[in-house]
Nucleic acid binder design. Structure first.
Lengths: 186, 186
DNA sequence: CACCATAGTTCAAGTTGCAAAGTAATTTTC
DNA sequence: GAAAATTACTTTGCAACTTGAACTATGGTG
């Protein structure tokens, strides 16, 4: 069954390449990989709650809470208590956040899209079909709440940009106290 | 509609499913995902050096050093100074380690292999072919010794000078404290 | 109102990751 | 053949990620 091995190896190469590249890309934006992912999710959804992000990323609420706090302190996303249910928090991306996302496009898109679009039609169709089949084999059963990622645009077509990655990573950060925490504290 | 989007969505489903599933699996084995990965690599290679593992995983030697120390303290892998070059360390998996790996099969294997092997030959071939094609698009053709990837960017201070030399330093007898017990992850 | 559930936050502790500095062995250079 | 450079690895200090547990605030029920 060499074929099984071959397919596993290829799959692992895909995972590895994505992970490593994603790390670099986030770094260039002055964020960590996880922070960038949160930002991308919020950007995609427009408005959502921390728990949505947590479930999509597969991490706990506690984790998201910390990440959001950080991103808020960077001024990349904003928090607002929901009008309908004051336990909930509505997240939204700020213009600064949108800019970041534009500068650091998705890891897959950056490397993959151009090549994919260069394939002949029939091959594109085959790739899509196989990937969907494989995805189905892997996630069967836990499709989870997330309606998958809407993905879609996000500045794809760009191709340009990226000329000057704003990287200012070390921003002492932290100690933002509450600010923006309109809930307790009062 | 956009085949590109379809393929990206599928790809992301694959990444997500794998990541989440791998985490659970490692947890069941009483290890973290990264620790399990190191163990699997050592198990696969039979015998190798820390730098090999580092380069395969895309992390620095320092990181691997810490992970190996932990796994050694758990009794899952063993260290031995190379006979030919005493700077090098030969890693090998212990029987306890082999057992762990067997109990927690590769993250992908568990869910995927059975289904893959149930596919007709021609479809298997197609899957392999497509996955390899996609992997090629993503990892710029090569893993270790990456010739960088052009694509205009990057600041990638790669790090990991890896190579394959040896080193020494005593084995065992080290690891002061450290309790070989590992949290247990509810 | 008492009670439980839900949404988030905070805290303590463990893990990952890296650069920089350090150690030891091997190879190169003069 | 000893200093100098290289290689392989370990340590250390720091920043970030992650989570369980405990806590706050709010919403819903009986």
């Amino acid at each position: 069954m060499d074929r099984t091995d071959d397919s596993l190896i290829a799959l692992r190469r895909i995972l590895r390449a994505t992970e490593l590249y994603g790390r670099d890309l986030a770094r260039d934006a002055g964020l960590t990989a996880v922070q960038l992912r949160v930002l991308q999710i919020v950007a995609e959804r427009g408005s959502c709650h921390p728990s949505d992000v947590a479930s999509q990323m597969g991490v706990s609420q506690a984790t998201i809470s910390v990440l959001i706090k950080k991103l808020v302190s960077y001024g990349l996303i904003a928090r607002q208590i929901s009008a309908t249910d004051r336990r909930q928090v509505d997240l939204s991306i700020t213009s600064a956040g949108r800019e970041k996302v534009a500068v650091a496009p998705d890891a897959l898109q950056q490397k993959y899209v151009a090549q994919f679009e260069g394939l002949p039609e029939w091959e594109q169709a085959m790739v899509v079909s196989v990937l969907e089949r494989v995805a189905g084999m892997l996630d069967a059963g836990d499709i989870d709440a997330a309606p998958v990622l809407a993905v879609g645009e996000i500045t794809r077509h760009n191709g340009a940009g990226q000329g000057a990655p704003t990287s200012e990573r070390e921003r002492s950060a932290d100690v933002p106290e509450d600010q923006a925490d309109q809930r307790k504290a009062s």
